[in-house]
Simulated assay, not measured.
Amino acid sequence: MEWSSDILGADFQSCTLETQEPGGSLRRATLVRYRPAGPATPLAGNGRNHERHDAGQGAVLFLHGWSDYFFNVELAQFWARQGYDFYALDMHNHGRNLEADSIGGYVADLADYDTEINSALRIIRAVGSGGSRESVALMGHSTGGLVAALWAQRHRGVVQYLILDSPWLEMHGSSIGRRAAQAMVAPLARLRPEMVLRLPERGFYYRSISVTAEGEWQLDERYRPPFAFPVRVGWLKAVLAGHGQVARGLGLDIPVLVFISGASANGMVWQESMRRSDAVLDVDVIGARAMTLGRSVTLERIDGGLHDVFLSAPDVRADAYARLARWIKGYMSDDLPQAVESGDE
């Protein structure tokens, strides 16, 4: 394994992870790490640095959403200020791994990501402090949030915290719509799993974040196309199956933090409200589904938040970061007071 300079600049390195498919062919994922060379810079919207804890608190692994890649330098800087090593994984058929013959974003089973996530975590553990304070948080956005939650259920005890940013935990509307969609795609997925569904293209979320449109973020269209990847029936079947698992309850026994926007803005034409709302998911449905994840779930609704709340306007994401810092202090810090035993005053 060799680390090399990453597309994000001098403070980032990346390495290629190769894993084998059941059929024998190789899948390629890319692990990115943040190694700052200079002093911390203030977070957007508040003009000050968050307090940095002692080094060696642990590490964070971030999973991007569908049709996406990791590019949020500010998120990496935030975690470094808290004393955590930051890593992000561009999963196979996404981002840094896309090639001319790639079937962008395609996977027939969300568990197919397990091998590359496991490989990334082994690397993170190997370069960590190795002491008793070492802990790992898994963080996921949108479809990456769904992948992260399902992975955590299958691999209990491997990570200590789960942080989800607008996770895609359910379809719009209700489970009734999901079951209807499952009935439609199941026979197609058996016969032609890579068949493309002809669905309307909506680039509103991209428009809300890209500096070339209404947003402030510099995106590389080679890694994150303005319109999402074509929806293939095998991939949709895998996502719907994941939604069904969440609906039945995951029973996670680690602390879970879920961020969602304060409002949704869906439709077939651009609306100004899409600048300060989730233009992808039904946030009320996601908020309800979040409660099925485990025994200790914190839900934060971010007024004015975009689909990725950490790409929202500066004042909005400053609020999100402040809430994340508060949760870290409450759940992830290693200097928490000891619990009072039963009967003690």
Rank of each mutant, 00 (worst) to 15 (best):
W168L: 08
E116H: 09
S67W: 04
R133F: 05
V147Q: 00
R317C: 07
W66E: 03
D54P: 12
R232G: 03
W235N: 06
A10G: 05
S210M: 03
L89E: 10
R232V: 01
G145D: 04
A40M: 13
P42H: 04
D112V: 05
G287K: 05
N93I: 03
L219C: 00
G9E: 09
Q20T: 15
P314R: 12
A126L: 09
G305H: 01
S333A: 07
A29C: 07
V196G: 03
H92I: 02
E134M: 03
L191K: 02
W327V: 10
E18P: 11
G242H: 03
G23I: 10
D54S: 09
S261P: 10
Q57F: 00
R248K: 11
A181F: 02
A111T: 09
A59I: 01
G45D: 11
A290N: 12
S208W: 01
A339V: 10
E345C: 14
R224G: 06
Y87A: 03
A318Y: 03
L75W: 00
R276I: 09
R202H: 06
R192M: 14
R202K: 09
R232S: 06
E170W: 00
Q245G: 04
A228W: 03
H141S: 12
G157S: 09
R323N: 10
E99A: 13
I163S: 04
A108V: 06
P225L: 06
I117L: 02
F86M: 01
D220Q: 11
M332F: 04
A263P: 07
P36C: 10
R198W: 02
D11P: 14
G267L: 02
G9V: 14
L199C: 05
M291V: 12
A120H: 05
M268E: 13
P255I: 08
W270N: 00
G9C: 11
A100H: 14
H141T: 07
R222D: 08
V340C: 07
R248W: 05
R289C: 09
